[in-house]
Design a protein around this nucleic acid. Structure first.
Length: 489
DNA sequence: AGCCTTTGACCAGCG
DNA sequence: TCGCTGGTCAAAGGC
């Protein structure tokens, strides 16, 4: 596979939003569990979060995680007999929490939760801890950001795996009391029933999990009529200290790397479908959208593969999407993007950038020219404050479930103004066709994370063409929080 | 003592 | 009506 003969990996460290070791361990666990790979090839890319040394003790992540978690750490591998490249995320260990904390769910620890302004990238450790502490206290209460009951559920589903190894209810910020367990037909493992322990709160949830204890499904009933309890009241492993619990306030910054002043204050109303959280920004994530012109609209009905939360389930979820293609207008620049939204909800937008700008960012434009409150950008996973989805998408033929793995470099955007125009990696298609790589179906609203019916379940990515990987420095990738490792078949 | 989980029994809906 | 199934209750025990 020319141009892609070698393995490549984009690895990163996870921004630690926790404030104590206990929380850290959990976050670390999930991050490591999901993304470890035996990168043996010369061409893998690796990036290290600047504080890596604070947490990483070296040694194989798999081993460490396995030792901690008590189960085998799955790896992202690309085994497939298909002639195309496949990314197979074997399911059990690829927890939703992992995914949520992956760049696919761009959280933005560098956004000030109070002002929405960007925080300096070069915070000292203490400052960062304080910052994350602050974030932690701003526990994510679906009701505070306009979540409807379904959204709340969706949110929680997204965190469903957080209890996987503890046996405790997933730490979604609320307190739950288990009141029943039953083996339901068609399920190999029992379903647990929980009630919210808050007085007069009638919220219940059903939790199903796999043999390893990974939550495979969480179904909520009703909605909380109270705020989330304070984190320190709770004895469990506190997810409230994770990035996931960030309340969504922030400022979106255009990806004009020169530090344009096109910041838009936004909050995060949440879409009413699939639990996808939307950031009401409407700004395009790119290089100043004036630099793009629409080249094509496309409407497709794609069946989205998603990631199994532990069980092998076939995704049959489909949706009609409308995708517009834009091309950078700069001379010689090949960057394209496409502004994707569900046909039934034009407010849900996923922007994907492909390519690397070869020119300086255009002069700052009047932000109002491309700020549309009615067209918020979607943050899949809903827990993130970032809105800059620099994503590289690889399409999967529509004849199959469309597995999309998003390599998201969103965190780079907060390195402005020092960030290069396209910090991160770029993946190009063959000679003519740009490839798209994304992870889809990872939104919090997913009741199930299912994958193609591969033996490993989980997520399989097919690359119909041969991408070319453009290496970037570790520094550039410094804030990429997860690792995606692709290995040639 | 209080809160939690466990677990068998009970109840309701449905075909 | 009966059987199946999912959901809930509540006693018992643990922490």
């Amino acid at each position: 596979m020319a141009g892609f003969n070698d393995n490549f990996a984009v690895m990163g460290e996870w921004v630690d939003c926790s404030t104590n070791h206990k929380k850290r361990s959990k976050a670390e666990l999930y991050s490591e569990v999901s993304l470890e790979e035996d990168v043996k090839n010369k061409d893998f890319l690796q990036t290290n979060f600047q504080e890596r040394s604070s947490y990483s003790q070296g040694g194989g992540l798999s081993e460490r995680v396995a030792a901690r978690a008590g189960f085998k750490v799955p790896s992202i591998n690309t085994e497939s007999s298909l002639p195309s490249l496949c990314l197979n995320i074997s399911s059990p260990g690829v927890s939703p929490a992992t995914l949520l904390e992956s760049p696919v769910f761009p959280s933005n620890p560098l956004l000030s939760p109070t002002t929405g302004k960007l925080s300096s990238l070069h915070l000292d450790h203490e400052a960062k801890n304080e910052f994350f502490d602050d974030i932690s206290r701003r526990s994510f209460d679906p009701t505070t950001i306009g979540l409807e009951p379904d959204d709340s559920q969706a949110y929680d589903r997204g965190l469903g795996d957080s209890m996987a190894s503890s046996g405790a209810p997933e730490d979604d910020g609320y307190n739950w009391r288990k009141y029943g367990q039953k083996l339901v037909k068609g399920s190999e493992y029992p379903r647990s029933y929980y009630k919210c322990t808050h007085p007069n709160c009638e919220v219940k949830k059903k939790v199903e999990r796999s043999g390893e204890g990974h939550v495979t499904e969480i179904i909520y009933a009703k909605t909380h009529n109270h705020p989330k309890p304070l984190p320190n009241r709770r004895s469990g492993i506190g997810s409230s200290g994770t990035c996931n619990d960030m309340q969504i306030y922030g400022t979106e910054q255009q990806d004009g790397f020169a530090g344009t002043d096109e910041n838009i204050e936004w909050t995060s109303p949440v879409s009413h479908h699939s639990g996808s959280m939307q950031v009401q920004s409407g700004t395009q994530f790119g290089y100043g959208d004036a630099a793009f012109f629409k080249v094509e609209d496309e409407e497709d009905r794609a069946s989205h593969m998603s990631v199994s939360m532990g069980d092998e389930r076939e995704a049959d979820e489909s949706e009609t999407k409308r995708r517009s293609y834009y091309k950078c207008t700069a001379s010689g620049c090949i960057v394209t993007k496409h502004v994707e939204r569900a046909s039934d909800d034009l407010s849900s937008v996923l922007t994907t950038y492909i390519g690397k700008h070869t020119h300086e960012v255009p002069a700052a434009r009047n932000s109002s020219s491309h700020v549309s409150s009615g067209s918020p950008g979607t943050i899949q996973g809903g827990l993130a404050t970032q809105t800059q989805n620099h994503q590289v998408h690889y399409p999967v033929p529509h004849s199959r479930s469309e597995g999309m793995v998003t390599a998201n470099s969103s965190l780079f955007d907060f390195q402005t103004p020092m960030r290069p125009p396209w910090a991160g990696f770029s993946v190009y298609g063959g000679e003519t066709e740009l490839l798209r790589l994304s992870i889809s179906g990872l939104a919090i609203g997913q009741e199930r994370f299912t994958g193609l019916p591969t033996p490993q379940a989980g997520l399989t990515l097919q690359l119909p063409a041969e991408p070319k990987v453009e290496p970037v420095s570790q520094q550039e990738l410094g804030f990429l929080r997860s690792s995606l490792i692709y290995r040639e078949i």
